[in-house]
Each structure stands twice: as C-alpha cells, then as structure tokens.
C-alpha cells in the first residue's frame, strides 16, 4: 500500500488555486446591450470562485458604473450626441479579499459631485425619485473608490469586498 505524503496531499492544488485568481478584461462600446452582455460574461467568469452575495454586489456596482458612462459620458451639443458612444476598458481582478476593478473611458469628464458623499434621493411619496440611485449604490457597495482624469480618459478604480468582510465591518 502506498500513502501519499502530507505535503503532496495538501499543497499543489491549493497553491495553484491561490496563485491563479481569475481575471476579466474587456473593451466594449458604452451601449446598454454591450454592457448587459459584458455583465453576464463577468458573472460566468467568477461564479465558481465567488459566493452569490459578493457576485451580486459586484454585478450591481459594475452595472451602475458602466451604464453611467453610456448615459452621461457621450459628448453632446444641444442635447444631440456629437461623437460616437465612448469606448470602455474594463479590468477586474479577483483577490483574496474580493474584487479590484478599473474602468476607463474616452467620454467627457465625470462631474465632481458624483464622488461626493450623498444621501438617498427624495423619499416623500409625492415626489419619490425615479433616478439618482446609481451613485448612491456605487458609493455604498465599493471600498477605496477613486477617480482621476488622464488626458482624454476617465479612470475609475474601486474594490468590492467579499461578503465575509462586509458582515464583520
């Protein structure tokens, strides 16, 4: 009878799993359909390595960030788009603690107010808001959210912690 030694039994699989966290990279046009397709691919990419709660929060944040680019980053003149939809570069890395994401686009600058702390939109039933939830959700669900403008690109980086970390904080 042969017994595998402990080292063999314990190490190779685990080490490999730790060192090769999945990543996701995509260049896409800022359109609702392309965004939806990308979000579905991201879910498929990370579903094995991530619990449903964390994955759900990641998908929601990314939906809000990407749709915001599609809606607001298009250069307009008198209400009409004067250029094509921006192109988005998206990178996501799964780490031990959650996800680290970088989103850049060649649209117009993000207004400062988006990143300032905010409350939920109006709550009175008579004037219940139908929009304005996007940046609230992004701020609520991310950690270390940072933005900078680099030449012609918006750059937004943030992390989405694992569900465990959220509960204990």
């Amino acid at each position: 009878m042969m017994y595998p030694i402990d080292r063999q039994k314990a190490d190779p699989g685990k080490l490999a799993a730790c060192e090769t966290w999945p990543i996701f990279h995509r260049v896409l046009t800022a359109s609702p359909l392309a965004i939806r397709e990308t979000l579905c691919d991201i879910r498929n990419r990370f579903t094995k390595s991530t619990d449903p709660d964390t994955l759900g929060r990641l998908e929601l944040v990314l939906a809000e960030v990407l749709n915001n680019v599609a809606e607001h980053a298009v250069p307009r003149h008198g209400g009409l788009a004067v250029k094509d939809s921006p192109t988005i570069h998206l990178s996501i890395v799964r780490t031990e603690r959650g996800f680290v994401c970088a989103v850049t686009d060649d649209g117009i600058s993000l207004p400062d107010k988006c990143l300032q702390p905010r409350n939920l939109p109006g709550f009175e039933d008579s004037e219940l808001s139908e929009s304005g939830f996007g940046w609230f959700l992004i701020q609520d669900l991310t950690q270390t959210l940072c933005y900078y403008r680099e030449e012609q690109r918006n750059c937004l980086a943030f992390s989405v912690p694992l569900a465990r970390a959220v509960r204990s904080s």
Partner: peptide
Amino acid sequence: FMDSSGLGALVAVHK
C-alpha cells in the same frame, strides 16, 4: 438582476 434603471421603472409604475 435589477439595476437602478429597473428600480426607477418600478418607482415610476408605483407613482
């Protein structure tokens, strides 16, 4: 899956 656009649509229906 529902994002803030979907939520906004439901708020509009509610109103």
